[in-house]
């Protein structure tokens, strides 16, 4: 227990990195996932095909492989550099991996939401002269996203925990920091583990409560 108290600043710092990974890749995933969903319902077969291909490849590849590819493939082989600072560089490379992966799931959830919006809504929008993109942006997506707030919350919850995979390319988030603390405090493995586990619960539990409440409040009445 002393080890946990002594190392508290380090542990909090690690969780701060976890939060940053979650927030940044969560936002990118939301935007890119909605764009992918738009592609998958677009009238252009090329876009539909590209969207379907992307989602099916990324959704069915283990996240660890994607993150390692980002670290070694993008970072080392293709020499994609975001910063001279090595840790900052792997932070952004893991953001790419996490976003690429999570956005595929966001796409499918949003697409399910789009399917709950009655066809008549799109017909009415087209009938007043809105273009395809306006129809999507002003009429379909606002209703679709509101119906899938709860499942989007679950994805965010999963993302919080998935950020630990960034440890594979050396990002000092909670999981990698926990391993290092195990090495330094071999006599306090259980307390340290419990401390980190509690940290994740503190992050994810409010998310679930919040998304549930938001889903009820923003529900579209028909």
């Amino acid at each position: 227990m002393e080890a946990v108290v002594d190392e508290l600043p380090v542990i909090l710092g690690a969780f701060w990195l976890t939060v940053k990974l979650t927030v940044v890749s969560g936002l990118i995933s939301l935007v890119w996932g909605i764009a992918l969903a738009a592609m998958r319902v677009s009238p252009l077969p090329v876009l539909r095909g590209a969207g379907a291909l992307y989602v099916n490849v990324l959704r069915n590849t283990p996240l660890t492989l994607i993150i390692v590819f980002c670290g070694l493939g993008l970072g080392t082989v293709m020499d994609v550099q975001f910063s001279d600072d090595l840790s900052l560089n792997s932070f952004w490379l893991s953001i790419i991996g996490l976003s690429a992966y999570t956005s595929a799931f966001v796409c499918e959830v949003v697409r399910a939401g789009i399917n709950t919006v009655p066809l008549g809504q799109a017909e009415a929008a087209r009938a007043i002269g809105l273009t395809f993109l306006q129809t999507l942006r002003l009429v379909i997506l606002p209703q679709a996203v509101r119906t899938v707030i709860a499942p989007l919350g679950s994805l965010l919850n999963a993302l919080v925990k998935n950020t630990t995979v960034a440890a594979a390319i050396g990002v000092m988030e909670a999981a990698l920091r926990m391993k290092n603390l195990f090495d330094a405090h071999g006599d306090a493995i259980i307390p340290i583990f419990l401390g980190f586990a509690a940290g994740f619960v503190v992050l994810t539990l409010p998310l679930n409560l919040l998304s549930g409440r938001l889903a009820r409040r923003l529900a579209v009445v028909r």
């Binding site: 809504q121 017909e123 087209r126 579209v220």
Partner: peptide, 23 residues
Amino acid sequence: GRALARLRSEVGMVFQSFNLFAH
């Protein structure tokens, strides 16, 4: 495309099931 959208803006439509924007 845009030409079709323009035409539709000049032809009003009232549906059996109203189709008001629910949100």
